[in-house]
Amino acid sequence: MAKSQIPDALLVQMYVSGDEAALATLIKRHQARLYNFIYSKVGDRDLADDFFQDTFIKVVNTLKSGSFYNEKGKFLPWIMRIASNLIVDYFRKNKNIKMQRDTDEFSIFSIIKDSEPGIETVMISNQINFDLSKIIEELPEDQKQVLIMRYYNDMSFKEIAEITGTSLNTCLGRMRYAIQNLRKIIEKNQISLTA
């Protein structure tokens, strides 16, 4: 009789008596149903392969030690139960990941910090920049030009002097007057430019 027609119970007996090919037949016969059963529970191919392998290792160990298996003709339900128990054990173990809750003494956020500025800081910063740009608009044109080139365009005084066609000292002087005038406007209008 071809191996594919032999009932499970007989194949198990043949395997226990030393016929390794009987195990190959059993695996071939039930691999699809068992694998799909495992996959339906875990939803991951690699994990399903691991469980499939562990299930048959358990089957091999049990049959070779000649104990526990006495369910004649019920090979598939038996291996499915083994797989199911392995899956339940796995998820039970993985559920026990320690959870950290905040207490009065310790907060996890004292260790983990968010480096991004908060929405409040961003809004205040935008407001300051907006106020400052309005004050700068009040400055005389030559002073405003030097200040913008220096701070907003990040140019050196030498470059500013070359572009504006003035001496370095004139640029430095205009910058000094620009800063003094800004202070005056801020004090006069009692503007606060700090967060």
Binding site: E20, L23, A24, I27, Q31, A32, Y35, N36, Y39, R45, A48, D49, F52, Q53, F56, I57, V60, N61, K64, S65, G66, S67
Partner: peptide, 30 residues
């Protein structure tokens, strides 16, 4: 229909061939 990897089945068959269980009294030696 999903099927296990060929390597997985190969491993099980190799493992089965390599495993020997010797019973001594109540003990099993693998």
């Amino acid at each position: 229909k999903l099927l296990p990897k060929k390597e997985t089945i190969q491993f099980i068959l190799q493992y089965s061939k390599a495993l020997r269980v010797v019973k001594v009294g109540n003990l099993n030696f693998e």
